[in-house]
Design a protein around this nucleic acid. Sequence first.
DNA 1: ACTTAATAGTTAAGCAACTTAACGACCTAC
DNA 2: GTAGGTCGTTAAGTTGCTTAACTATTAAGT
Lengths: 175, 175
Amino acid sequence: MTFMEDERKSEGPRRVQTAGHEHPTAGAIGNQLRAIGALSKAFEQHLGRTLAVNDTDLEAMEHLILSGPMTPSELAPKLGISNAATTFSVDRLVASGHARREPHPTDRRKTVIVPSPPSVARAFDALMPVLNGVADAAADLPPQHRDIVGAFLASVIDVYEGALEAGAAEADTPA
Amino acid sequence: MTFMEDERKSEGPRRVQTAGHEHPTAGAIGNQLRAIGALSKAFEQHLGRTLAVNDTDLEAMEHLILSGPMTPSELAPKLGISNAATTFSVDRLVASGHARREPHPTDRRKTVIVPSPPSVARAFDALMPVLNGVADAAADLPPQHRDIVGAFLASVIDVYEGALEAGAAEADTPA
DNA sequence: ACTTAATAGTTAAGCAACTTAACGACCTAC
DNA sequence: GTAGGTCGTTAAGTTGCTTAACTATTAAGT
């Protein structure tokens, strides 16, 4: 690690400098979490290649599969893109046969995007090894261990949520 | 959950259908892992906004900070983009003052990308809450619990790596 | 009932970031 | 010293996003 050898002489408490000297295994857990993030990203990209769709369209399919058919306006915020971009994504999914548009039963302005069953099945088959693998790993733990892991993951979630809130608050206060 | 009501009558063992009926807490752990993935993605985007860089450039900065200065050719595979695209990313980082190009000391073909200390400090300050938060959460665990969590995360990593290998193998065998 | 305003989806024009291919500069080996 | 490979950059083209404008439909006001 050859960074920040000069600079940053002292300006507050800094427990984590490079990778945590104080608790070797504690730092290791952070590394594992980061590794999982990288692996899950890699896996998603692999999955996208398998189904011949780009990242956005794959994510759209995931939402359509996990939450069921929905309108473009509902989908857009889940994808974090504009309404118009969602139209393009749906266009691509329809063109490649992964989904179809259906009129909304009561509101004629709306369109419902329905994932095609074969595509759902293919996505599921590709996802299953990971879903099952993680579920099995968790299921294989004795219940107390499962609770310990669950509690730790909950605390990690709290950390992220806290950091995001702090960041949002700081955005409100332009200093 | 209104999906796959027809189709998929039976074609093999399927333990995880919607969200794991057999082991409620086991499924919960999978959900937690997914939540952590989503949160860390959201946090990265927030961080990118804070430093006024896009996702790619932020990831480049992270690699430059965590692994130290490196050449574009080393950076490109870490970003998962082409060499040429890395040139553009570096151009942007240099233009915004987050990094600078330096000639390689021995090989005059190469350029070394060096992150600017102030940008490193800013990124660090923004990252610290999460880094420290996770490290603290891990450090607060009694050692046996830490081992339990570490072992579980290791098994999750194995699951992903196994799935990626299987996917790669299947790509070789065009069926 | 008719007009006004709001909502849903799409289209249009423009922009940002990627790709592959081709280049000049440099290193390495024969 | 020349031949071939590597490094970074440039060029041309593609993809996928954005905002703004437009059409169709619904909801609300009078």
